[in-house]
Amino acid sequence: MASQEEILEGLANIVNEIAGTDVEDVQLDKSFTEDLDIDSLSMVEVVVAAEEQFDVKIPDDDVKGLRTVGDAVDYILKAQG
């Protein structure tokens, strides 16, 4: 089970790999599309990479609810449990 900090760090690395965004810029209050240069297709890549890294399932219908990095961290925390 990954902690909130570990999930944030993991997501930051994934976003950096996919969009080139600096790791330090990936913070809980940041919006994927508005702040981090992640479009809808890139978001699918982020989700699939997060599923693989944290061993969770994030159904397509739930992806729409993940507006900010914090939304994604909370979702993954709950999904792990």
Binding site: L41, V48, E51, E52
Partner: peptide, 10 residues
Amino acid sequence: PRRVGPLTVP
């Protein structure tokens, strides 16, 4: 199939 990248077609 879940791992097939969304950028595959473009």
